[in-house]
């Protein structure tokens, strides 16, 4: 398997150097010949400037697309496996593991990723999966917080995503979440940095176009966490946001900041209707 992976990376690099990498924009995604993934859907009403939404998978090269069609070829699944061990491992002062409260992740976590980020009534805030995981760790297990983009955290979000694959993203943006959503929307359309570029400039006005060697997608988050071939690691949404803002020659926001939590909710809502797809594979 490792060999096969290496080979597809080598092909990618070779193609990338000689000619623009071609994406098969009409391909459909079925994982393990079993899980059907919706990669194109009508845009939700609150996404006024798009009529159709697409998963980032659609814009990747045929080789990268193929890596996600079988869990044996998807390097992100290694993170899922490692999180399964953490799921069952007792940690912290209370002598508990995730499994002590939630039993089997495959059953108890099914559907969870599709509705996150989500308003938490008790805490009076919008919470991402990372925040919920850390809340369980500190208040229920008496364990230490995990870092936002640490391996253990990203792997755990991969496990929780993987059991919802194929279910439609459906984050709520009404009621008490509305204010956070509005704030995220404002950030999405703000032109940051010395290049004065907003998320919308690249991912709304120019998806499908090349920007130098990159084929721009709609910047959807339904595939997160994403295994990036470039860094050979699983990445959180906030890490991706940070990279994109940095590339506008701007001062970024911190991972876990209120700004990125709001942006996370807003961007997720633009993908309502696409399937949960994480861990996905991108270049």
């Amino acid at each position: 398997m490792k060999n096969k992976m290496l080979r597809s990376v080598a092909v990618l690099v070779a193609v990338g150097l000689s000619a623009p990498v071609l994406a098969d924009e009409d391909a459909d995604l079925v994982i393990n010949e079993e899980i059907e993934i919706t990669v194109r859907a009508p845009a939700p009403d609150h996404t006024e400037n798009l009529s159709e939404i697409f998963s980032g998978w659609v814009f990747r090269s045929a080789e990268t697309q193929a890596m996600q069609m079988d869990d044996f070829d998807n390097p992100g699944m290694i993170g899922v496996e490692s999180a399964m061990a953490d799921w069952a491992a007792v940690d912290g002062s209370e002598g508990k593991s995730c499994a002590s409260c939630h039993e089997d992740a495959e059953t108890s976590m099914k559907g969870v990723r599709a509705v996150y980020p989500k308003w938490n009534e008790e805490a009076g805030e919008v919470r991402t999966l990372e925040m919920q995981i850390n809340d369980c760790r500190t208040t229920r297990m008496g364990a230490e917080e995990w870092k936002w983009s640490g391996d253990d955290m990203v792997d755990m979000t991969a496990l929780i995503s993987s059991v919802s694959r194929g279910m439609p993203m459906n984050v709520a943006i009404d009621g008490p979440a509305r204010e956070t959503w509005e704030k995220g929307k404002e950030i999405y359309y703000t032109r940051y940095g010395q290049l004065e570029l907003a998320c919308a400039n690249c991912h709304e006005d120019n998806y499908g176009n090349m920007i130098r060697a990159d084929h721009l997608s709609q910047g959807q988050t339904n595939g997160f966490p994403v295994y990036r071939l470039k860094t050979a690691s699983l990445n959180s949404t906030h890490k991706r946001f940070r990279g994109c803002i940095r590339d506008t020659r701007a001062e970024t926001f911190a991972e876990g900041s209120p700004e990125f939590i709001a942006l996370d909710l807003y961007v997720a809502s633009r993908g309502n209707g696409l399937s949960v797809e994480g861990p996905s594979v991108r270049n």
Binding site: Y192, E196, R249
Partner: peptide
Amino acid sequence: GYIRPGDAFTGKAA
């Protein structure tokens, strides 16, 4: 006249 101007591509403030 920039919003959150950064120090080139470092992600840090300028």
